[in-house]
Design a protein around this nucleic acid. Structure first.
Lengths: 108, 108
DNA sequence: TAATAATATTAGAATATCCTTATATAATTA
DNA sequence: TAATTATATAAGGATATTCTAATATTATTA
């Protein structure tokens, strides 16, 4: 596989995490699987929109779905996703602590 | 800080990683700081475009810049960025190994 | 089989991202 | 100060994402 293609796929994974609602979905799924209805109730989000986010996350391999009768339950596909999210959140928080007001300028 | 705002900022960090060129920049900076010219040469990318990517990464606290005379050297701001990238790459690779051709469908 | 509940998909407008070209700024040297 | 080199910023078209509203599908039960 050419490097270019790998970077593209890798960017695709990151892109999938690059949305506040999808990050919230991930947080809700930390404790184990949840049904779509439960998620929708927990999340203040429209049904169609939630379904779209979940479809995207399924395609990128972030979540797995399991149908049980009329309900569909989603879970995280890999615990490393939580680790990666936590690390990025730490990067964010450390950046905020260091004084984000300086961000974008050269630090003297 | 409200949760919403945190998710938004977190998504901003992910968004910054959600681009093949920026991931390549991160890879090039793994070994330590590099000048813009060196980066541009290593990367098959236009000068203006590289500068824009670096500006974005600076704003989000991913990289830090240091000017030395007429040159500007960039480095990663936090080793956790590398860890997070590596984890996401692992998630990607494991997903590919498991047969991405099934992706998007319910696994039976 | 018809009705219902749960979930998924489609269409399309609003917004954001990306790259290229042109221009601006900053530091150095003649 | 003028010219040069390195880097940054701005403008704008092409493309991608996001959300809402409407419709389709899937499974269950009457």
């Amino acid at each position: 596989m050419p490097d270019d293609r790998l970077y593209q796929l890798h960017a695709g994974i990151c892109q999938t995490l690059a949305n506040p609602k999808r990050l919230e979905i991930i947080d809700h799924l930390r404790g184990g699987e949840l049904g779509v209805t439960q998620l929708a109730e927990a999340m203040n989000i429209g049904q169609a929109n939630l379904s779209q986010h979940l479809a995207l996350m399924r395609e990128k391999g972030i979540v797995l779905a399991r149908r049980e009768g009329v309900n569909v339950f989603y879970r995280l596909s890999n615990p490393k996703i939580i680790q990666a999210c936590d690390l990025m959140r730490q990067v964010l928080l450390e950046h905020l602590e260091k004084g984000a007001e300086l961000a974008g300028s050269y630090r003297k």
